[in-house]
């Protein structure tokens, strides 16, 4: 049965970028305020889910040609690597380092290795959620 989804598809093309932008903001807000890698990953997979609802599985795989299982593996590598990297400096597992760095254009920056750990969590959450959705949704 053919249905007319013009309003949904046009609205999705706008709202998708707003959701992705908000998920990036939530991801970077995670250290002192509510947010972090988990919620950011869930929001990003929500954006991809909206794309899947408005269009179809084949087209989304053309737009985003990722293998989500590799994304899970990459995220786990990031998270474990950040934790195990502390062992090289004779500190306990999962100790994180931070420092103030002065860059020419950006000015004073407060950098933290917890962001790398959060990036791993983000990639794992997006990969697992999209694998579940694609496995359940695409079996017909």
């Amino acid at each position: 049965m053919k249905t007319n989804d013009l309003i949904l598809q046009t609205a999705t093309k706008l709202i998708l970028f707003l959701i992705v932008l908000f998920s990036i903001y939530i991801f970077f807000a995670g250290h002192y305020t509510p947010g972090g890698g988990f919620v950011g990953g869930l929001l990003t997979s929500g954006a991809i889910l909206l794309l899947l609802l408005a269009f179809d599985l084949k087209m989304v795989q053309n737009i985003l040609p990722f293998n989500y299982l590799y994304m899970v593996a990459l995220g786990l590598l990031f998270a474990i690597g950040t934790g195990a990297g502390a062992l090289l400096f004779n500190t306990p597992f999962l100790t994180h380092a931070f420092g103030d760095i002065h860059l020419p254009v950006l000015g004073e920056l407060h950098l933290h290795t917890a962001t790398l750990f959060d990036l791993g969590v983000y990639l794992v959450v997006v990969g697992v959620t999209m694998t579940i959705i694609q496995t359940i949704g695409g079996d017909e």
Partner: peptide, 17 residues
């Protein structure tokens, strides 16, 4: 949106539109 699409079509994510 997901519930409404289920109501309209019966499938939520279709393979090829």
């Amino acid at each position: 949106v997901a519930f409404s699409k289920y109501l309209e079509k019966g499938v939520i994510i279709d393979d090829d539109r």
